[in-house]
């Protein structure tokens, strides 16, 4: 294509239209969140002050900036509950990601070693549940975990337990639901990395007398590191903000930050605090998101 200085109108439109859409519906909304997080709670509709009023001109602008306050943020730091929810969310995300890595790695490894002609089919089988609604997948577990569900029936029949166990409304159920829902997100990046691994390297290690377990940790794991990092980030980041899974499977004491935000917004109608919660959540997630993005861009450039 021609150089940047004289682009024709079609190329310009291709840039301008999606750009304008994203600014209007992604950047601008976020700036509004930022602004409301700096406002004060009010019993009004909308329930916050100050409201930006461009018609009031310069004086209005001055009032607007003068009325901005850090009250919501100070409230976040003052109340233990919020700090605890952030901590809980990060903890749940970190533990689930670790469990995911442990159980997805063998599956991804087996996929990459499977005979070529089956691989496409097997990968499709792993991806398929991702296409069904994740609400359905969480709901499927309620079927199994409920008081008279399949799991309790099996355990009772095998005489492992004497009375039905309450599985729902526990942290275990939340971890199970998260691991189940994010399983394909972890398997796929791992598979992509392991599939590129040259079997000749493993044979070389074996020929030189390296025992299989050492080959695994000295050759396979380091070479699949990009997949490990990508998979972990791809799971960790959204799990921190997870709302539906803890809401349906967890107890009222498993309050992850997504649930707290929801409650502040719809329950307490405290929009400034809800916005401040969102801003802080995003700030926590910015470093992992940036790392993830950098890796993705690098990979795309390499593919070029």
């Amino acid at each position: 294509m021609k150089d940047a200085t004289h682009r024709d109108w079609t190329t310009r439109a291709a840039i301008f239209v999606p750009y304008a859409w994203l600014i209007a519906f992604l950047l601008l909304p976020f700036l509004i969140v930022l602004k409301i997080s700096l406002s004060q709670t009010a019993i009004a509709q909308p329930p916050y002050v100050p409201v930006f009023d461009p018609a009031a001109g310069w004086e209005g602008m001055k009032d607007f900036f003068a009325a901005l306050s850090l009250d919501s943020y100070l409230g976040l730091f003052a109340d233990q509950l919020y700090a605890w929810s952030y901590w809980k969310s990060i903890q749940v995300a970190a533990i689930s990601t670790a469990i995911l890595l442990l159980i997805a790695y063998p599956v991804a490894y087996a996929l990459a070693r499977a005979p070529r002609r089956w691989q496409g089919m097997l990968v499709l089988l792993v991806v398929l549940p991702f296409w069904t609604s994740f609400l359905i997948r969480v709901y499927a577990w309620i079927n199994i975990l409920q008081h008279d569900g399949l799991l309790n029936q099996v355990l009772l029949a095998l005489r492992i337990v004497d009375a039905p166990v309450s599985w729902l409304a526990t942290d275990h159920a939340v971890y199970l639901g998260i691991v189940y829902s994010y399983f394909p997100f972890m398997v796929l990046p791992l598979y992509a990395a392991l599939e590129k691994l040259d079997p000749a390297l493993l044979e070389a290690a074996a020929d030189l007398g390296c025992p299989p377990s050492r080959t695994f940790f000295a050759v396979t794991v380091p070479l699949s590191l990009p997949g490990i990092v990508a998979g972990c980030l791809l799971c960790f980041i959204p799990i921190v903000g997870e709302f539906v899974i803890p809401d349906l499977l967890g107890s009222s004491s498993t309050s992850m930050i997504g649930q707290v935000l929801w409650l502040e917004f719809f329950g307490n109608r405290d929009w400034p605090v809800a916005s401040a919660l969102a801003v802080v959540l995003l700030l926590i997630l910015v470093p992992p998101i940036l790392i993830y993005r950098q890796r993705e861009t690098r990979q795309l450039e390499r593919g070029r």
Binding site: L26, E242, L261, A278, L285, I289, R293
Partner: peptide, 19 residues
């Protein structure tokens, strides 16, 4: 802006659009 929504928690996207 293209990459952010891919990983951003949905509660943030939802809240900001509602506002």
């Amino acid at each position: 802006m293209i990459y952010a929504p891919l990983v951003m928690p949905e509660v943030i996207t939802g809240l900001s659009l509602l506002l």
